[in-house]
Design a protein around this nucleic acid. Structure first.
Length: 863
RNA sequence: GGACCCAUGGCUCAGUUGGUAGAGCAGCGCCCUUACAAGGCGAAGGUCGGCAGUUCGAGUCUGUCUGGGUCCACCA
């Protein structure tokens, strides 16, 4: 492909092409600030978007291209409707994904006990590390430096993809979730939550990832089917047969604190109130009754361990049982047996992983005869951290929580009410929200025992023994935020008092990434930092996002806004669907990594890829379909060529649309504008595109063919009417296509118009009706279409060229039809090469009665 | 176990308030026609997952079943 020659800024190229449009127009848009937010606009004329900050942990994938295009379509429509569009971009670079990427990329591990090394440099061949390369321990500060370094590189790459894709983001409004502004907002919001009693810390059993060594929240859980086995184990009784339980976690036997059966279970009623002895470890545990025990499960009686699953936690709490923990935070069994547990057999398990311990204890139980029969294999769902590799354990630890209605019916109702206030696109997605909020079983655990995150902004006083007092933390002033309590010093203390008796210590934890992400409206809108801006954008108009994170991002954002501002964070939300493999599965990582966004954009062109994305309705999963991209590319090419044709004739004076066909075309286009507008207003960009596209192809195939002869012809007024109508139609069409095909429409616009098409007003039917001289009968186009179709059909059937003349054509229809025919007769003679066009009044619809083809013209070799 | 979405020609999908189905792609045939051959034109191809209802009439409303998919819950 060669670059189209362009002699001046306003000329139609001889051979227009799509290649290179992305770079050329992105540069112009950035230079001219085409998408800059007008921050003098009043709230009423602002359209504010709470853009999803993509996770910066590698590369964007096809799904991003898909859903971010959806947002851009809506943004561009709103902009053309006269709104000042606030369309920021954020980078979600804090949290575990970045840590994991840094670990793998540089082959390092964060060890908070290491001192900072100012001269540390990661290995030069980073990024090509083989799996299993031993990780180098570096300090927390060095680790965080690497997080910043790597995420900054990724963010540059992401920005390039988004610009190539043509997102009309205002790149002057960007933020990072680990940036100062985000940390300040997250800490400020937390301090206010704390002051209002919405945030609290407590020591309790929590779900724990043994690899990441952090607590995780309910919203981050994922069930995975895992192989397991029921082990039937006997518990000894004084002077009676043993009681048999079945468990999938025999390794937790040393942590057993009771047995439990349903109160109505007659088999076990005699045992309630008695005690039994755990095999191997000889601990005396009570047999208790609780409604949660299911008689039909296993043997109907379960062992309660501290802690095997969340039901254990419930039993432990409600039955007021002691703690006998054996699983440490690294996923290994503690070295010392809990009190009362026989040390000898336990010593065989100490230090082993849960998996290893299970293997050994099964051997021990088999040897001792306490294991009955062979373990019965089953497959059962096991809770995982959604990013984790090993099943979650439950450990007791001190954690921060934020009230989210999980333990408070009143708050839960209010939050359901907020969901009701939102306009959901599509509407059925609200049930996801309702399901989730209705099913919450605890408050939101917001603390993480990690490094690259927003630290909790507080310190604890140390008493004279050096023990922290958690009840009255030392808090920073809001004006001092953000703070890092591990390096900053609380007011009234000096740095050398850190960790000293009578001094202070930092809260060691960072916030859950969602605790920051839930504040994206506040961060992007510069809450408190720039009250003027915030007032112009909040509450936002739109939250676009994936439907998989309704329970996390969407819900948590509603929670924060409800607590802090007493309102919804936005008035509407648009949920994009998944990208599916050609075999209808969710787009797999492997495919997603092979098909890189930039590669796609380069191969098909951004407009073509956007066209494919625009065909995916909100909330609907869409197949990854390069065929659709080819169709989109063809559409863009067609737009270039049709525009070139439409602009080939001299510009006529205003009001020169006189011919019925021309006026009918504009009238039909006016209807299309109305439909597209209505669809876009309802967030149905797909329908808007479909209507526009359908009109456009008819415009090319029928209308242009019909008026071509007249436009080239010598009848000046008639030619002027065609030229004028072509330009009016093109003008409106370019604007209708502009949200979907920003590059090609801008290119064509630049051939004959000033400014950017993206700054123009969205077309209205009114302007077309005015230009097209009011209401006209569109049916002459239908009559012409009937003739065109028939003539093409006959020529095709006769396997002859479209240049073959029609000697005679005879049509029949109502008197009205024949009047319409008369209006288009000249154009039809030109377009179809009809020598003799006759008609008669007849019954029924307009129809071509007969036609006779002439001789095909001699084939002439083209130059 | 609870909730939600989907099921229309080989493939991907339209079908707005109910009136006997539309498009694109693929396949097939034809055409170098002065905007367009990485193009254009044309013909063919479905009775709308099954069943039962409401209705004069249902792809389009109700119930039910089947088959996909998703979310949540359970997970001794």
């Amino acid at each position: 492909m060669t670059e189209s020659p362009r002699t001046s800024a306003r000329a139609v190229p001889d051979r227009p092409v799509l290649d290179g449009l992305e770079q050329r127009w992105d540069e112009v848009w950035q230079a001219q600030g085409t998408y800059r937010f007008d921050r003098t606009a009043e709230r009423g004329s602002v359209y504010a978007i709470d853009t999803p900050p993509p996770t910066v942990s590698g590369s964007l994938h096809v799904g991003h291209v898909f859903s971010y295009t959806h947002t851009d379509l809506l943004a561009r429509f709103q902009r053309m409707r006269g709104k000042a569009v606030f369309y920021p971009m954020g980078w979600d670079d804090n949290g575990l994904p970045t840590e994991r990427r840094v670990q793998n990329f540089y082959g390092v591990r964060c060890d908070p006990s290491q001192p900072y090394d100012a001269d540390y440099e990661p290995p030069a061949d980073s990024g090509a590390l083989k799996k299993g390369t031993p990780q180098v321990s570096i300090s927390r500060a060095n680790f965080i430096e690497l997080c910043h370094r790597l995420s900054a590189e990724d963010e540059k790459a992401f920005e390039r993809v988004f610009k190539t894709l043509g997102l009309s983001v205002d790149w002057q409004h960007t933020y990072e979730t680990i940036g100062d502004r985000a940390r300040r907002a997250a800490q400020r919001a937390f301090l206010r939550n704390l002051a209002r009693g919405e945030a609290y810390a407590t020591e309790a059993p929590t779900l724990w990832d043994v690899d990441y060594k952090t607590a995780v929240a309910q919203a981050e859980l994922a069930d995975r089917d895992m192989p397991g086995a029921y082990h039937r184990i006997g518990f000894g009784r004084e002077g009676a047969e043993p009681v048999f339980i079945e468990t999938t976690r025999p390794e937790l036997l040393p942590a057993c604190v009771a047995l439990v059966a349903h109160p109505d279970d007659e088999r076990y009623q005699p045992l309630f109130g008695t005690t039994v002895r755990t095999p191997l470890f000889g601990v005396r545990v009570p047999v208790l009754a609780h409604e949660l025990a299911q008689p039909d499960k296993g043997s109907g009686i379960a062992m309660i361990c501290t802690f095997g699953d969340t039901t254990d936690v419930t039993w432990w709490r409600e039955l007021d049982l002691p703690v006998r923990s054996i699983v440490a935070r690294d996923g290994r069994l503690v070295m010392t047996a809990p009190e009362g547990v026989a040390p000898a057999p336990y010593a065989e398990l100490a230090g082993k992983t849960v998996k290893q311990a299970q293997k050994r204890i099964v051997e021990l139980l088999a040897e001792s005869g306490d294991l009955v029969g062979e373990p019965a294999p089953i497959t059962h769902p096991v809770k995982f951290y959604e990013r984790g590799d090993r099943p979650l354990e439950i450990v007791t630890s001190r954690q921060w929580y934020l009230r989210n209605g999980g333990r408070d019916t009143g708050l839960r109702k209010e939050l359901l009410g907020r969901g009701e206030e939102l306009v959901w696109h599509p509407g059925f997605m609200q049930s996801r929200y309702d399901n989730w909020v209705g099913g919450l079983n605890g408050d939101w655990l917001i603390s993480r025992q990690r490094f690259f995150g927003v630290p909790f902004p507080l310190w604890y006083r140390l008493d004279l023994e050096g023990e922290p007092s958690y009840d009255d933390p030392l808090l920073p002033a809001e004006a001092d935020l953000p703070v890092d309590p591990t390096s900053d010093v609380p007011a009234g203390y000096s740095a050398d008092q850190r960790g000293a008796a009578g001094g202070f210590m930092a809260d060691p934890d960072v916030m859950d990434t969602w605790a920051t992400s839930s504040l994206t409206p506040q961060i992007a809108g510069a809450w408190e930092d720039d009250p003027d801006l915030f007032a112009r954008v909040f509450p936002y108009d739109l939250r676009p996002q994936g439907h998989d994170i309704i329970r996390t991002w969407l819900f948590s954002t509603v929670v924060r806004s409800h607590l802090e501002h007493g309102s919804v964070p936005w008035t509407g939300t648009a949920l994009s669907g998944w990208i599916l493999d050609p075999d209808r599965k969710k787009m797999s990582k492997s495919v997603g990594n092979v098909v890189t966004p930039l590669g796609l954009l380069e191969q098909h062109g951004s407009d073509a890829v956007r066209y494919w994305a625009a065909n995916g309705r909100l909330g609907t999963d869409t197949a990854f379909d390069e065929g659709q991209m080819k169709v989109g590319r063809r559409l863009a090419v067609k737009l270039l060529n049709a525009s070139k044709f439409a602009l080939a004739f001299p510009e006529a004076e205003a009001g020169a649309v006189t011919e019925p066909v021309d006026r009918a075309l504009l009238a039909r286009l006016a209807d299309v504008v109305d439909e597209a507008t209505k669809a876009f207003e309802a967030y149905d960009y797909t329908r808007a595109l479909e209507r526009t596209e359908s009109f456009f192809w008819a415009f090319c195939d029928d209308y242009i063919e019909l008026v071509k002869g007249r436009a080239y012809g010598a009848d000046a007024p008639a030619a002027a009417s065609a030229s004028r109508a072509l330009r009016l139609a093109l003008d409106a069409l370019l604007r209708l296509f502009a949200p979907v095909l920003p590059f090609v429409t801008e290119e064509v616009w630049s051939w004959w118009r000033d400014g950017s098409v993206h700054s123009q007003a969205w077309p209205t039917s009114q302007e077309l009706r005015l230009a097209g001289a009011g209401t006209v009968d569109q049916d002459c186009l239908a009559v012409a279409g009937t003739v065109l179709e028939r003539v093409r059909g006959e020529k095709s059937r006769a396997k002859t060229s479209m240049k073959t003349p029609v000697l005679r054509l005879h049509a029949s229809g109502t008197a009205d039809d024949l009047t319409l025919l008369e209006q288009v007769a000249d154009d039809l003679r030109n377009a179809c090469l009809i020598a003799d066009l006759t008609s008669e009044v007849g019954e029924g619809p307009f129809v071509v009665v007969s036609l006779e083809l002439g001789e095909a013209p001699p084939k002439v070799a083209r130059a």
